[in-house]
Each structure stands twice: as C-alpha cells, then as structure tokens.
C-alpha cells in the first residue's frame, strides 16, 4: 500500500514523502528539512522552495499547537458520510508552520475557539490507515 494509506480516505498513492508513513507507524509526526538551507516544511515536502535543493532530512515535531479556526462538517463527501458530524481544524505548530487536521471526536466542540491549545497526535483508522489529528 502506498500513500493512500494516509488520511481517513486517501486519494494519492505515489509521493516523494512516503517515509512520513513510517514515522506515523512509530507514533511520531515528522516534518522535512532542507539539508542545504535548513528550511523546515510541514506538511512535508521533498523539494525546497528557497534553494530548490531536493536533499532532505526528517525532523520529529513535538505536536504542540494553537487552534486558528475550525468547523463541524454535517454534509460530507460519500467516503466520509458514516462519520458525520466531524470536526476539522487548522492549527499553528510551535515552529510557526500550520497543519490542517481533523479534531479528535473526544474533544468537546464547546471548548473549541481560535487560540485554544491542542496537541497533534498520531491517529489510526479501521482500514489500517494512518494520519494525525488534534486532541
């Protein structure tokens, strides 16, 4: 199985950043860092925007983040309908990079507001799929 294992329902199978899955399997979330200019990317990318070099290393993130905004989805694409309603959020990590991720259903919607602190953690789906969510 390729990268379609990523997410609740993955669409893309072949990518340059498939090693992210190995980190997720070990319970870790990792970003990529350009070996030449040291710019860090999350979501990971294999090609540096600044210096156009494509030699990267992986760095593990601590997952601490602050919520920027969120929504609760009631009307979902077909593959996601059994899970409705569900929460989606955008958060800023401590390194200033941003992550778009589901918010764990264990989080009380009433407690959510831009600015609240959440942790980005590895999540596992029932189809052996792997991703991350905010909790």
């Amino acid at each position: 199985m390729g990268f379609e294992k990523f997410g609740r329902f993955g669409y893309v199978s072949q990518t340059k950043i498939n090693p992210l899955l190995s980190y997720l399997e070990k319970g870790r979330i990792a970003a990529t860092k350009c070996k030449k200019c040291e710019r860090t990317y999350f979501p990971p990318r294999a090609d540096c925007l600044d210096c156009r070099h494509s030699t990267i290393e992986w760095v593990v993130l601590d997952g601490k983040s602050k919520l920027i905004t969120f929504t609760q989805v009631f009307f979902a694409p077909p593959a996601f309908q059994p899970e409705t309603p569900y929460l989606l959020g955008l958060a800023e990590l401590t390194n200033g990079l941003r992550v778009f991720a589901p918010i764990s259903p264990a989080v009380d919607k009433e407690e959510l507001n831009p600015g609240v602190e959440l942790n980005l953690k590895v999540a596992k789906g029932s189809r052996n799929n792997l991703y991350y969510w905010l909790e």
Binding site: F3, F6, G7, R8, F9, G10, Y11, V12, T15, P43, V73, F75, A76, P77, P78, A79, F80, E83, Y86, L88, F100, A101, P102, Y131
Partner: peptide
C-alpha cells in the same frame, strides 16, 4: 459530493473529509 470532497489539496486536506 465526491467532486466537492476533492475541492481542496488532495494530498494533505481532502483525505480528512473537506
């Protein structure tokens, strides 16, 4: 609805049910 689900970045955002 299926098309709508792929309105965002299909690698990093659509897999979460956008």
């Amino acid at each position: 609805q299926e098309l709508m689900g792929r309105a965002g970045d299909v690698m990093w955002e659509s897999p979460f049910g956008t």
